[in-house]
Amino acid sequence: MIIKGKVHIFGDDVNTDEIIPARYLNTSDPKELAAHVMEDADPAFSARVKPGDIIVAGKNFGCGSSREHAPIAIKAAGVACVVAESFARIFYRNAFNIGLTIMECAVEAENGQVLRMDTATGKITNLALRREYAAKPIPAFMQELIAAGGLMEYVRKGMMK
């Protein structure tokens, strides 16, 4: 899959409390969650983000709570991909489970620049800087999960044996 989108920059240790504050966790509705996505890191983000945009962040993205509402809110806001230098373990697992595309890579970018990414090869290009980056390969087992259509499909197809 080729993703081409505008970048929104975030820093290190963006935690799930910032991605979707607990005061909104009295619902599981993706649309309601999306209305508050990233609110405590950047209150204007949900109004600014457009479908197909890309989040670029530093180390340990998604640390903290295990709330799946975090990747759900990002996905429901239309974010095409999160690229981070590294992801916290539970967020990483959740993103694959709900089908949010994420790539592990340290990318140089500024707000508003456009990235082109090939999820198959992990090649990321910053079109403004004309620089290329190679994302960390997705582990073979995770690729199997993705190919099956996510964890629940994997289970349904009887592959969880």
Binding site: N94, N97, G150, M152
Partner: peptide, 25 residues
């Protein structure tokens, strides 16, 4: 499906936090 599930390590259990889909599965 709570990140502090790791608490039970104090009882020498291997316990870890996951998300809701993992719990559903």
């Amino acid at each position: 499906a709570d990140s502090h599930t790791c608490t039970y390590g104090a009882l020498a259990a291997f316990s870890t936090g996951v998300g809701s889909t993992d719990l559903g599965a």
